[in-house]
Simulated scan of single mutants.
Amino acid sequence: MGELILARHGETEWSRVRRHTGLTDVPLTAHGEEQARALRGALKGRHVVRTLVSPAERARRTAELAGLSAAETDPGLWEWDYGGYEGITSAEIRKERPGWFLWDDGVIPGGAGHPGETVEQVGERADAVLARVGPPPADGDVVLVAHGHFLRVLTARWLGLEPALGRLFALGTGTLSALGTEHDRPVVSAWNVPAP
């Protein structure tokens, strides 16, 4: 049975300094490009039959450098819309909202183009992506190239968990994870594996 391979895009300047990067299209850093190139080797032994990628340049560039040239763009793979917290770090938010935690407390509305999303709305998008992808085919793997928080929510939904339980799955930039089945039940086969 094939697996659903999750590739988080390489490092950006905002991810490096831990700024919430939802819909802002920030390019990869030089290190992020190195991470993306390294994914090519990590994917080499896999039979990839389909690749879907977020419309964000950082995800599309990661797919390109990883050798996933036939990627289909899927708007459902965009990162969580952080609304008024776009471009701000958690530490900065906690100065005004002590104890704030994205997964529990959510975001505030932002300006034009950044209305913000609840974790449940991100979960609905993840469910729609999983429905479009369907179970991985027996003859190969399906790769999703996207973003940290979104892929964490998608993993929770793959496992039948509520979207907010994505908080349990830390995910670094330029990493691969694999979702599969065991005895016809969804499992995490590998998680947060950096490319060699």
Rank of each mutant, 00 (worst) to 15 (best):
T24K: 07
T24D: 11
V26C: 04
V26S: 05
A30V: 10
H31A: 08
G32S: 06
E33A: 11
E33M: 13
E34G: 08
E34S: 15
Q35C: 03
Q35D: 09
Q35P: 07
A36Y: 07
R37P: 07
R40G: 08
G41M: 01
L43A: 12
L43T: 09
K44Y: 02
G45E: 07
H47A: 13
H47M: 05
V48K: 08
V49L: 05
V49H: 00
V49Q: 01
R50A: 14
R50N: 04
L52K: 13
L52F: 10
L52I: 14
E57T: 13
R58C: 08
R60M: 14
R60S: 06
R61L: 10
E64G: 01
L65P: 01
A66T: 02
G67Y: 08
G67R: 07
L68Y: 12
S69F: 06
A70P: 04
A70S: 15
A71D: 10
A71K: 10
A71P: 14
E72A: 07
T73E: 11
D74Y: 08
D74I: 04
P75V: 02
G76E: 14
W78Q: 15
E79D: 09
Y82D: 05
Y82V: 01
Y82E: 02
Y85Q: 00
G87A: 04
G87K: 00
G87R: 00
